[in-house]
């Protein structure tokens, strides 16, 4: 495979991405999701099984996410075509006595549920299951109107602040370390009164440990590329005070909209590319086999 990051497809289809937290997808409900520009409907049956399909009815192209889950089926809102959990159409209300064609099937994507998330793979999964990272609880999914690479740079260099009243801690000094025993890269940022250790745990996943006034806390960031120029952040942490963590995330997202921070972010992103030209794309996106 190529060693030049620029030749990697920006959005690699071969890895698992989290799309919704397990706790956020109750039985009998669905969620529209965009992953790498693909529109998906993710739904959980009454029995608890999570599925991810193309958000498009094979009949007339209507988005299934405006339909409804009924027991183990998903119903399209346009003509009531009803799809079983294997995605084959089992009922066409216009023709109650007629068995639906086998061609009437929604497009199914590999789906797995692990570690508090529903994971989807758009291509052939390179591993049977997404890599687990026990010990963190899924708290919040937030959408960022920034390119994925900028959000990676932000989480790698700016610590979350649990005391949201303070000014954002921009990095003053950055030290990068490439680990010898694998593709992961550790990185350290020191700001005036805060420190951050951030490390790629796996493609698209960053473990962070922040220190503020002598107190340490850690969190886990999983990234989901959505549409070009934006992404979703699935944030987890081991603590019990979910409210503080959520507020820190909101503050972090809002800070990135400040023009002066946005420009610093571009510097950080370039710095990341300079320091890790070969591995960066793989670390962010996962590498194609």
């Amino acid at each position: 495979m190529s060693s030049d990051a620029s030749t990697l497809t920006l959005r690699n289809p071969w890895s698992w991405y989290p799309v919704v937290a397990t706790k956020d997808l109750e039985r009998g409900t669905l969620a529209p999701v965009v992953l790498n520009g693909e529109r998906l409907v993710v739904w959980r049956s009454a029995a608890g099984r999570a599925s991810a399909w193309s958000d498009r009815c094979p009949h007339r192209g209507m988005r299934l996410s405006f339909g409804a889950v009924h027991q183990e089926t998903l119903i399209c809102p346009y003509h009531g075509w009803t799809f079983a959990d294997d995605a084959y159409c089992v009922r066409i209300p216009a023709h109650p006595g007629v068995a639906p064609s086998r061609a009437a099937r929604a497009r199914v994507y590999p789906t797995a549920e692990a570690d508090g998330y529903v994971w989807v793979c758009l291509g052939e999964p390179s591993t049977a299951a997404p890599s687990a990272q026990p010990g963190y609880r899924a708290v919040r999914t937030l959408h960022f109107s920034h390119p994925l690479e900028d959000v990676v740079a932000a989480f790698m260099t700016i610590p979350l602040q649990l005391e949201t009243g303070r000014a954002v801690s921009l990095p003053t000094e950055i030290e990068w370390t490439r680990k010898a025993d694998g593709p992961s890269v550790a990185e350290r940022t020191i700001a005036s009164s805060a420190a951050l250790w951030a490390e790629f745990e796996a493609p698209g996943m960053i473990v962070c440990e922040a220190r503020r006034d002598g107190e340490n806390f850690s969190y886990f960031i999983r990234l989901q590329p959505t549409e070009s120029g934006s992404c979703a952040v699935h944030a987890a942490w081991p603590g019990s005070d979910s409210l503080s963590f959520n507020r820190a995330l909101i503050r972090f997202r809002n800070d990135l909209q400040q023009p002066e921070i946005a420009s610093r972010l571009r510097d950080m992103r370039h710095k990341l590319h300079e320091l890790m030209p070969v591995h960066l794309a793989g670390l962010i996106q996962g590498e194609a086999p």
Binding site: D24, G28, T29, A31, P32, G67, A68, H70, I75
Partner: peptide, 28 residues
Amino acid sequence: YPALWRWFDRVKKLHGFIVMPGIFPNLS
């Protein structure tokens, strides 16, 4: 807006809920 989406579902399940054009009913 995933949390909005979940809240929409809760509103649609309220007893007596009605739709207007543009809002899809709860078919379940």
